[in-house]
Nucleic acid binder design. Sequence first.
DNA 1: ATTTAAATCAAACGATTGTTTGAATCATAC
DNA 2: GTATGATTCAAACAATCGTTTGATTTAAAT
Lengths: 220, 220
Amino acid sequence: MQQPKETKTKLLDVAEKLFAQKGIDATSLRNIISEAGVNLAAIHYHFGSKNALILEVVARRVQPINEERFRRLQECENNNLTGPELLEGLIRAFLEPLIRVKVETPDRVQYTHRILMQLQFGSGQLLESVFHLFDENIKRFFAAFTKALPDLSPAELSLRFRFMVGTIHMIVVEPPIKKLSMFSEMSKLQPDILMEQIVSFLVAGFGSESPKPQTGVNNK
Amino acid sequence: MQQPKETKTKLLDVAEKLFAQKGIDATSLRNIISEAGVNLAAIHYHFGSKNALILEVVARRVQPINEERFRRLQECENNNLTGPELLEGLIRAFLEPLIRVKVETPDRVQYTHRILMQLQFGSGQLLESVFHLFDENIKRFFAAFTKALPDLSPAELSLRFRFMVGTIHMIVVEPPIKKLSMFSEMSKLQPDILMEQIVSFLVAGFGSESPKPQTGVNNK
DNA sequence: ATTTAAATCAAACGATTGTTTGAATCATAC
DNA sequence: GTATGATTCAAACAATCGTTTGATTTAAAT
């Protein structure tokens, strides 16, 4: 009656939506199979366990973005850019693949992001599998940023790299609550304008000169 | 045998630790009372429900920081600063109260942060109560930033305000995984140097000039 | 010493969880 | 058409959850 692949992808789709909307722990397997219209045992038949289902849900969305980021990174390296141009290129290589997907399918990005945030508190094995999805990509970008900003120490670089990730997160995460009027203003921005806003913020911040080590100074 | 307040605060302490380490949903009330050495019914006697316990756990940490931020904000307004000085002052007023607590009690800040992130996916009533803790503070700061950067539109301002929050989050959140060497470098930074790094990044980013509305341009 | 309220206790409640089982049904190939 | 493997099904499993109950103990007041 139903193609095998339809059952599997339908489970992935429904699980993705419910995990993001209600939370992973608050979503029972019975919630999923109920909305998917399949049998309870189908989850363990196709995936093996709830954790394996979770991993497949996120991997399906993360891997394409990783590949595109990697492709854009190589494009930067082949162009032999240096200094500020390289910095902006790397920021765009890291940023635009995600923004592109966000523009095309806003819900999907938000779903994945909400699920990933929840997984930071998960059990050991699942957590490691999830982070392994990002391992290599992050290492490659960090090495590239090192070339773009050779004057910064590794500690400073990793700090600013994390700032960049935090800034990007604020684009993906939905406004914490609708009633705060200041956040409703934000969503009016056009995607390409939004993009330039992020780049402007990040290029200025990432490339700002290292603060002098004025030990113990309390300039107030 | 035990003072009443000791039981209540012990429950708050244990719950705070377990909620952050294992996750809220993965922490049963029996886990809490077991480690606290009290009876199961004590939670419902002192708090009423698990949700009420959660709210008290976070409110106990959030409110002091809010008060300090508010105090620092008023200090800024009384000093009649303008332009870049006002911007940096506001950023420090928002930043330093949190960093100070992080330096004094790093675990506590990380606990609260991890719990707050989880609560974004919680039920309606609890979620509203939690965000109500931040409502007024955010509105006040947003109004102040509007005066510091009058040339930016409300949409641009709210966007950069969110960027700032995202950047700060990256300071509070623990490195996603220890094995990534780039993140272990970060924790070597001294607190005051870390502070100047954030301010440098944020002042440059927050104060960067608004990108020109070059419609449809694809400068690649 | 007696009273009163606060606090703690063991025990059980019904509900829901992820997982497993074994039979029934499907599609496909011989 | 019959055999084979893949898929779906209803039903039950043991375990754990948040919450409630009523009795018991503790501390303070009269």
